[in-house]
Design a protein around this nucleic acid. Structure first.
Length: 488
RNA sequence: CGGGGUGUAGCGUAGCCCGGUUAUCGCGCCUGCUUUGGGAGCAGGAGGUCGUGUGUUCGAAUCACACCACCCCGACCA
């Protein structure tokens, strides 16, 4: 079977779908809109989880778990929250099946008194619970994260980028003051940006969402926005300042140091398996997946090239110490000496799966005391001495990590435009990428631009330069440029 | 949820318009031998409710209707 991909240039969408399938990351399931994450894909998600989880712990958070089901009544307590999620909730109405003439049916006698919502996010059940946990300022701050699955009944789905069920983490924190909650919101936004840039090698823009794009129930939504290879924007993570909205909705009060009863201040923040989509669409090429070393389940694969069983035995012997030295450096190594596949096949396979470094070693190398080292990011090869190979590989992995970030950053810079008129704006959006333009700050203008060009305001970048200008659409005065793009 | 398209072996497909032997080909899979520095070669072999259901017909992959799934485009969205 030809495992070749259609090129990104020819059909980016098909390239992505084929890549996810051929790199063995995930597949569609029997359930509409839901995917099966296969071991190769899940391994990357696990690496992401490990790195993020450590960052959460390092910033003082602990993990907990809240139920999948949420009583329907909880949702009606925060008005804008229900408005935001009502259209995409899965609802459990019964708790039993039974046999009938037509096979298994839902037992009409087993109707739930109160219907349960499969969580689209957990603010409501968590704040209901927090009410029982918080009485005094001494109980604050409460810094909790949970790793979970959530369900949002999407009309149109895309593997990893948008599925009906997805995996994520959601942090939910409670604080004594607005200032503290704001600081938490920013801290976690920075954690996400740090993770995206230093682990995923994906440069991101930190910013604030406009009211239109804000999380349902938040006072302010902060985000990191990435740009993928096709020039479209992807919201890669969000951190919300919830003010006292949920505390008021669920009556969560505490006594402060002055003995005064007050509502607590809240934040929530999350990233999901969507990050997998961002990762894939940021670095991969027409030969397949490219995984940054820090997120690669296997960082180095060693492929033996040999003739006959004796030949393989000799190479096995030579590889063992190399593998050991690499592993001693904390590098994850797979030695693929399966006799069922030929070397060329393995080369192509590991390229498709994005393993950062490949070492090939054959008879010729044994004589010369060398190995052939190939790097996935640039698809180049060099012959290196076995002596000190572990140091060279260690450096190479760092270099690849670095190189991927630099390439992604360069691509973003190249596709970032600044415009002053609506004509230019439309052309720039047509071309794709990020577009900085003046905006009058009204929801009406934002909406019109979206209708006419499909571009949305991704965010108002943090620490944005103040600069007087005129809105590209309305011509009204504006004090700063905001970031527009067509988004996933 | 609207508009368009597609469904034939694990994957990709021919056949369908114009109904008629045993449903085509490639890749993959299995067995054996030879191979192994970029997706090996030869020989043999297995694998199919033609998306599902109902109907038309002597006869349906092929015609009709309904349903389901997926893809593309819109509206919605992490």
């Amino acid at each position: 079977m030809s495992k070749e991909l259609v090129s990104r240039k020819e059909d980016f969408s098909k390239w992505y779908n084929d890549l996810v399938a051929k790199a063995d990351l995930a597949e569609h399931s029997a359930v509409r809109g839901c995917m099966v994450i296969k071991p190769t894909g899940y391994a990357i998600w696990e690496k992401m989880q490990q790195a993020l989880d450590k960052m959460f712990k390092d910033t003082g958070h602990v993990n907990a778990y809240f139920p999948l089901f949420i009583p329907k009544s909880f949702f009606s307590k925060e008005a804008s929250h229900i408005d935001g999620f009502a259209k995409e909730c899965a609802v459990v109405t019964h708790y039993r099946l039974k046999n009938s003439e037509n096979g298994i049916i839902v037992d009409p006698d087993a109707k739930l008194e109160e219907e349960l919502i499969v969580r689209p996010t957990s603010e409501t059940i968590i704040w209901h619970t927090y009410k029982g946990w918080i009485q005094s300022y001494r109980d604050l701050p409460l810094l909790i994260n949970q790793w979970a699955n959530v369900v949002r009944w999407e009309m149109r789905t895309r593997l990893f980028l948008r599925t009906a069920e997805f995996l994520w983490q959601e942090g939910h924190t409670a604080h004594a003051t607005a200032k503290e909650a704001m600081e938490e919101t920013e801290r976690m936004l920075n954690v996400y940006a740090d993770f995206a840039e230093n682990f995923m090698a994906v440069p991101v823009i930190k910013g604030v969402k406009t009211p239109n794009e804000r999380f349902a129930g938040a006072i302010d939504t902060y985000c990191i926005e990435a740009m993928l290879q096709d020039g479209k924007a992807l919201q890669a993570g969000t951190s919300h300042f919830l003010g006292q909205n949920f505390a008021k909705a669920f009556d969560v009060k505490f006594t402060n140091k002055e003995g005064v009863l007050d509502y607590v201040w809240a934040t929530s923040w999350g990233v999901s398996t969507r990050l997998m989509g961002a990762l894939i669409m940021s670095h991969s090429d027409d030969n397949g997946l490219v995984i940054p070393p820090k997120l690669a389940h296997t960082q180095v694969v060693i492929v033996p090239i040999y003739k006959g069983e004796e030949g393989l035995a000799k190479i096995n012997e030579a590889v063992a110490p190399i593998k050991q030295k690499l592993e001693a450096k904390g590098i994850s190594v797979k030695y693929d000496n399966r006799d069922t596949q030929r070397p060329g096949w393995k080369f192509a396979e590991y390229e498709m799966k994005g393993i950062p470094v490949r070492i090939a070693i054959g008879e010729r190398d044994l004589q010369n005391g060398t190995v052939e080292v190939a790097r996935r990011d640039e698809l180049t090869k060099e012959v290196l001495s076995i002596e000190g190979i572990e140091n060279n590989i260690e450096n190479l992995l760092k270099e690849i990590q670095d190189n991927l970030y630099k390439k992604a950053l360069a691509r973003r810079e190249q596709s970032t435009q600044q415009v002053d008129t609506y004509e230019e704006f439309k052309k720039a959006i047509e071309r794709g990428g990020f577009v900085y333009a003046h905006w009058d700050g009204t929801a009406e203008t934002e909406q019109k631009i979206k209708e006419e060009t499909k571009a949305t305001i991704r965010c108002v970048p943090l620490n944005n330069k103040k600069e007087n200008g005129k809105c590209v659409y309305s011509g009204k005065p504006s004090e700063q440029r905001v970031l527009f793009a067509v988004a996933y």
